[in-house]
Design a protein around this nucleic acid. Structure first.
Length: 800
DNA sequence: AGCGGATGTCATCCT
DNA sequence: CCAGGATGACATCCG
């Protein structure tokens, strides 16, 4: 349904616009009055009536057209949404395509509704303020005013307060021209405008009246109900509006519009990209851009083409007569801005006011070129002209050369080149991400070098895999090495590997935990053989109380490990060395476990001494010497652990390893077999406890080490990620830089082409361009600076 | 002699 | 409640 509705609405609008352009007069009002209910049903569905908003109600009342606002609004909303989506698709800076096409919906000025009456709090709604009754006469006049400058989006209250002198003359001229349009045309346009407004943008957005407000200001006599609406919309959109913020009085009605509106509008901000799009749309490729109005939508194209819709077609060329073209331009801009506003609204209503508008001077300063003729104001507020909607616009990829695109235009413009334009970048949700907080003001500033710096500074990150390899591979490798060193056969080594692989425990140690239940009584040693700690234990146990096995074994293992980290080497050693040692013992081999504790001291001792002898490491030699020099028994005593000595002293009939590693049941059985006294039992229990705690401590330490290694790995990964992000940042910065340049050039071009009613270029000293969500505004400098000032603002939007 | 790493041990908590 | 794992703290050994 939505889809159909969307197209239906759009088509209807376009058709109407076309008719209006052609000169065919359609009485839309009557049509809508009669048809609306059905249309509404079609478009909105039966339930639509329930969803009416205050805004609509206001409009209805004020309009007097009796059109159900909702239908139009929704329609518009969907259409706008679609357009917005298309535009958003362009957000990607990297999109290479440079093509830009914009659909413009033209609204004739006459349609303006005077919002003045509604200025009340109800306006709080985005559009609410915009709702205004439109004077057909005014609208027509407005239309006639055509020249963008005249069409200025009047800041609120300007009219009543009295427009700024400089603009007045121009405005008057414009006004006069505006009269040319027939009332019918105006009505038609007005209807279209309403639709736009309903879509979500306040009427103000579309209000022609606002634009024309300048002219109205010039001509106080003429009532501009519309003007009031325009003012409102502009206020909302522009910071400048703040100036108007003082209660702005509708020229005709004399109603004052609360400042609140202004603030509300100001909150919406225009994103940089949006501005760029607008600029691009406005300045298609070098040539004088013309807006083609097709039905409701007109495409912005490079201007070589003739605009079919003559009346609404806008030419960017500076020489353009002030007549209609400027006005159209304005409208288009407004439309664009309105769309942008919608975007903002969708994303987040909490837009940030653009600081730019407030300080035009600052911006100027930033700009390289000194002269600022004027400023485009893009009203951020939701309200504003929606005449122009970008249908398809794509930003050139960052890499693309902006200058190339725009140079032609620049060349053509030849004459004055106003410099800078101030762009207000607001926080639009979409763009913000890319541009971040960058303010358009900064556009002209030299790009930050941070990105490059970062890149250069970014340290080369170590290969992530290296660490992994280290971690994962070292253990196994070291084990294998050990095995080989100690005379393991390849088969044995492979067996060892299998053991490693098969074990899925926390750590090697844990997996091979001696205490593992699987061990049978006879083979109870398994733990010792497998686990790192167990190895040590097994040795102890096997050796009995007096062997040097531990030291010798340790050294041997260390040698195998080589220069690797001590921790690692030790861990590895602890985990797997034992099995190798017991290899030579047939009975143990079958089980794969360490049964050293079963071995008599002598045997173990001899074995160890052999092992140590085989070792080539320095520590080993020492031990060898010790071993040779001292009697085995003494040496064993000296080397044995305290518990071993104690156990021997207490005449404990079995080895410590057995005490430690036997499963509880077997251990108890063992104790039961031997008749032991209290002291002996206590010692045995302590030995077991300490032994287990020892293994636990080793496991704990290994885990700590693993944790540290993992953390290191994580740090490396993060560093790598950081480097990547920095790289991306650089790229974005580059894009932003290019975009800024492009905006700058476009702004210059635009300003250069602006002409007042008399065809004179605007003085940079007097005017400046301001960008806002609502469009680009040409604002008097004093207005910008003094936002609180009166309606003087003669904003003349000149759209190209 | 002092330092730091490795290891053992204890106490404690938790499962 | 016991056995045992986990872990911090401390002690000891050793280079």
């Amino acid at each position: 349904m939505l889809y159909l509705k969307k197209y239906f609405t759009e088509g209807l609008i376009q058709f109407t616009i076309l008719l209006s352009l052609i000169g065919v007069r359609v009485d839309l009002d009557s049509y809508f009055n009669n048809q609306l209910p059905p249309l509404r049903e079609i478009i909105l569905g039966p339930s639509s009536a329930y969803t009416q908003t205050q805004f609509h109600n206001l409009r209805n009342t004020l309009d007097g057209y009796g059109i159900h606002p909702k239908s139009v609004d929704l329609d518009h909303f969907f259409a706008t949404r679609r357009l917005l989506n298309q535009v958003r698709s362009l957000d990607h800076l990297r999109v290479p395509s440079t093509e830009l096409s914009a659909w413009l919906v033209h609204r004739d000025p006459e349609t303006v509704v005077s919002a003045t009456s509604q200025s009340g709090p109800s306006i709080a709604l985005d559009n609410g303020g915009s709702l205004e009754d439109v004077n057909n006469s005014e609208a027509s006049a407005m239309r006639g005013a055509g020249s963008a400058s005249e069409t200025t989006y009047s800041l609120s209250g300007e009219d009543s307060l009295g427009a700024v002198a400089p603009e007045d003359s121009q405005e008057q001229g414009e006004r006069e021209s505006s009269d040319d349009l027939s009332k019918e045309d105006i009505d038609l346009i007005d209807i279209l405008w309403r639709q736009d407004i309903d879509l979500g943008a306040g009427r103000e957005v579309f209000n022609y009246s606002n634009r024309q407000k300048e002219s109205e200001a010039d001509k106080p006599n003429e009532e501009n109900e519309e003007a009031g609406g325009r003012e409102e919309s502009w206020r909302n959109g522009l910071n400048l509006r703040a100036v108007q913020s003082q209660a702005h009085v509708d020229g005709e009605t004399g109603e004052s519009i609360p400042e609140e509106l202004t603030s509300l509008g100001a909150q919406t901000s225009l994103s940089l990209q949006e501005c760029l799009r607008l600029l691009e749309a406005t300045f298609p490729f070098g040539e004088e851009p013309e807006f083609q109005a097709t039905g409701s939508t007109s495409q912005l194209r490079p201007s070589t083409e003739e605009t079919p819709s003559t009346s609404q077609g806008i030419t960017l060329q500076s020489p353009l007569p002030q007549s209609d073209t400027p006005l159209d331009l304005e409208q288009q801009w407004q439309d664009i801005m309105s769309i942008m506003e919608l975007q903002d609204m969708e994303v987040n209503n909490t837009a940030v006011n653009v600081s730019m508008n407030n300080d035009p001077n600052n911006n100027n300063a930033s700009t390289t070129e000194s002269v600022t003729i004027g400023s485009f104001e893009l009203p951020r507020s939701t309200l504003i002209n929606q005449d122009v909607s970008l249908h398809q616009a794509s930003l050139p990829s960052c890499s693309q050369d902006f200058p190339t695109l725009f140079n032609p235009e620049l060349d053509s413009t030849g004459g004055q080149r106003p410099t800078l334009v101030r762009v207000s970048s607001s926080n639009s949700s979409n763009i913000n991400s890319t541009f971040g907080a960058t303010n358009l003001t900064g556009l002209f500033l030299p790009p930050a070098l941070n990105s490059t710096t970062n890149l250069t500074t970014t340290p080369v990150l170590p290969d992530p895999f290296s660490s992994l390899l280290e971690e994962s591979m070292l253990d196994e490798i070291s084990l294998l090495d050990l095995a080989m060193e100690e005379g393991f056969s390849q088969a044995q080594a492979s067996q060892l590997e299998d053991e490693l692989d098969s074990d899925s425990g926390l750590s090697l140690d844990s997996s091979h935990s001696p205490a593992s239940p699987s061990n049978s009584e006879t083979s109870c040693s398994s733990a010792a053989s497998s686990s790192s700690t167990s190895a040590t234990f097994s040795e102890e146990g096997a050796v009995g109380y007096s062997t040097d096995s531990e030291a010798a074994a340790a050294e041997t293992e260390e040698g195998a490990v080589g220069g690797y980290q001590p921790e690692y080497s030790k861990l590895c050693r602890m985990s797997y060395q034992d099995p190798s040692k017991f290899h030579g013992i047939p009975q143990l081999e079958s089980v794969n476990h360490n049964h050293t504790y079963n071995l008599p001291l002598a045997s173990s001792y001899s074995e160890r001494s052999q092992l140590s002898a085989s070792c080539s490491k320095k520590g080993r030699d020492k031990q060898m010497q010790q071993t040779k020099l001292q009697p085995p028994q003494d040496y064993a005593d000296r080397q044995s652990s305290r518990d071993e000595r104690r156990a021997r002293a207490m005449d404990i009939p079995f080895s410590n390893e057995k005490i430690i590693n036997l499963p509880v049941e077997e251990f108890n059985e063992l104790l039961a077999k031997h008749h032991l006294n209290e002291d002996q039992l206590a010692l045995i229990r302590d030995i077991r406890r300490r032994g287990k705690n020892k293994m636990a401590a080793q496991n704990c330490r290994k885990r700590k080490l693993d944790t540290i290694l993992n953390l290191e790995q994580g740090v490396q990964d993060l560093q790598r990620e950081k480097a990547q992000l920095l790289k991306e940042k650089m790229e974005y910065d580059k894009c932003i830089r290019q975009t800024k340049q492009k905006v700058q050039s476009l702004s210059r071009e635009l300003f250069a082409q602006l002409r007042d009613e008399e065809g004179r270029p605007y003085s940079a000293s007097e005017y400046c361009l301001q960008y806002g969500p609502d469009g680009v505004l040409l604002m008097p400098r004093n207005m910008t600076t003094e936002q609180s000032n009166k309606p003087d603002k003669k904003q003349k939007d000149k759209k190209k």
